[in-house]
Amino acid sequence: MSLPLAAWFARLGGVDPAPFFVLSLLPYLAFLWWAQKVRAFPRLALRGFQLTLLFVAVTIAAAVVAQLAYGRQLAEVDPLHGGAEAFLTLSNLVVLLGFRPRPEQPLPGEQVLRGRGAAPPDPEDGASASAS
């Protein structure tokens, strides 16, 4: 049972991972494109997801430096590796903070109630709110 799996894993190791990393960029850009059109998507979380692109850019640059200056892959040059990965720690933190629960967050449908409670309904305000 474990033997075929081990053989498959060994074969997997012979595959070049680079094209998958390159290919994964396209759906990620599509993700960002659609996500920014979602009005309820927390803007801070969106920033975090965008920052991930910075992490990718820094990682590529660091990998090139590791190869040219040390003739090694990025994971073998610890300061470059850690320095690049720190950008992912940052972007993930921003994503997490973007989705953290905020009590003042307007709920769908609740906005109307809150608007009524805060001020007497102005017919013009109401019209513009429903139009937008």
Binding site: A10, L12, G13, P17, F20, F21, W33, W34, A35, F41
Partner: peptide, 25 residues
């Protein structure tokens, strides 16, 4: 093979993220 797995799952995951965002829209 773990690195290849990482790369493959990254591609798959990003595709899933794109679908999820499209679904939200």
């Amino acid at each position: 093979g773990l690195v290849v797995l990482q790369a493959g799952l990254t591609a798959l995951g990003n595709g899933a993220l794109a679908l999820a965002a499209w679904n939200l829209l």
